[in-house]
Computed example of a mutant assay.
Amino acid sequence: MSETLDRRRHPVRPDLAALDYKGRVDAGAFAEGEVFQITADKVALRPAPDGSRSIDTEALRGEWVTVYETTDEGWAWGQLDTDGYVGWLPSECLGKVTPATHRVRALRTYRYPGPDLKFPPLGLMSIGSQVSVKGEVENRGLTYAILEDGSAVVARHLVPVDYVAEDWVQVATELVGTPYLWGGRSSLGLDCSALVQLAAQAGGHDLPRDSDMQEAEAGEEIDHLDPVSLRRGDLLFWKGHVGIIAGPNQLLHANGHTMTVAFEKLDKAIKRIAETEWGEITRARRLPVI
């Protein structure tokens, strides 16, 4: 017995599959999996254990991943808890699980070896990263959050894990100018669907990772597409692309045209994209803005 499953969302290979799939698919072996936490600021997930392969997506610090295999070459194959994405990543980026208390709300924030901005930073975390705060220390009028490993970040750059932004589209606008990066999922570089996912997450919406998944599942489908009647927060989809309606005749998207997150007049964008391989709009979906 076997079924065809999307490799991006199901930990199933011909030689190995998650134990939950036993009886559903044919695989050489089944593994229960072990949960780890991402300890790098960000790390690429790839379709194969090969650093020369293109990036499928990225995992951010503090996210959990269930690992089903590790190799002697230093790779791990697993599934992200955040959005269920499956892929290969370096096993050196994995550590023990510590439940998060906060997440990064600033576009990015430095992590220091202690509570002092003059210290050389240990790393740079993106919006959406998750941390466990153990206390706070004030130094020269600036409050630092002390993390589980003793490192420190500026406290006002964090929000509680259950915090919900009032306007998720505003979060997306803060990312204007961010470089476009295929498979990127951080404020240092991201693609069209990552812009939607990260901003919507800040507004309390848990969305799948890729644009085809979002087209099928995000919010509610708009039955009658009329660009004039679109609202702030509506999502427009093309083949392989998604953009956000930010206002009347205003599209916000991470795109390969400007190679950045940028605003574009909707009517001009529709005409321009129609002349490319992405073609006409395929669907529109409504994602509420508080």
Rank of each mutant, 00 (worst) to 15 (best):
V104T: 05
D41V: 04
A200E: 06
Y144A: 07
G141D: 04
F30S: 09
E217A: 15
G87S: 02
D50C: 09
A172R: 01
D50K: 01
L60I: 09
F36T: 00
A76M: 02
T82W: 10
L117P: 08
D6Y: 05
V65G: 00
E264S: 10
C93N: 14
V171G: 03
D267S: 13
D81R: 13
H157Y: 11
E174K: 14
R53P: 02
L287Y: 01
V161S: 09
L16S: 01
E166C: 12
V164S: 13
Q37W: 05
Y68Q: 00
I273A: 03
E136L: 15
L235N: 06
R285L: 11
V97I: 14
F36W: 03
V161P: 00
G33H: 03
A18S: 09
G183Q: 06
V86T: 01
E3F: 15
V171M: 08
T282V: 12
T282I: 03
W168P: 00
Q201G: 14
E63A: 11
Y180G: 01
M213I: 07
W168M: 06
I281E: 05
R209Q: 09
A274E: 12
G23A: 03
R9M: 12
D26R: 11
V169S: 04
T70K: 13
G184N: 07
L198C: 09
L16H: 00
G189E: 10
H241Y: 09
L251W: 13
D50A: 12
E63G: 00
Y68H: 06
R156Q: 13
L235Y: 12
H157W: 10
R13M: 10
T282R: 02
A106C: 12
L89W: 00
T71D: 08
Y163T: 05
F36H: 05
F30D: 02
V169W: 01
R13T: 08
Y144N: 08
V228G: 14
D191V: 12
A262H: 09
E148Q: 13
A27Y: 04
G123N: 01
K118L: 15
P14M: 09
H157Q: 12
V228C: 13
D162P: 04
H10R: 02
A246N: 07
R24F: 15
Y110K: 08
I273K: 02
Q197N: 11
S193F: 03
S52T: 08
C93Y: 13
A17W: 06
G279F: 11
F237W: 11
D83V: 08
G256R: 14
A48N: 12
T258D: 15
E63S: 07
A18Y: 03
R285W: 09
V169F: 10
M213R: 05
G247N: 06
T276Y: 07
G184V: 05
D6S: 10
S151Q: 07
V131G: 04
D26M: 12
G243F: 06
L122I: 10
S126V: 02
G87C: 04
A202S: 12
I270D: 11
L230Q: 05
H102N: 10
G243V: 04
A216V: 03
V133F: 15
A165E: 14
V261C: 08
A155P: 00
F36S: 01
A29Y: 00
E63P: 02
L251I: 08
T260K: 15
Y85I: 09
R231N: 14
S186T: 06
M259F: 14
V104Q: 08
D72Q: 07
R209M: 13
E221T: 04
H157R: 07
A40S: 12
L147S: 01
K271D: 13
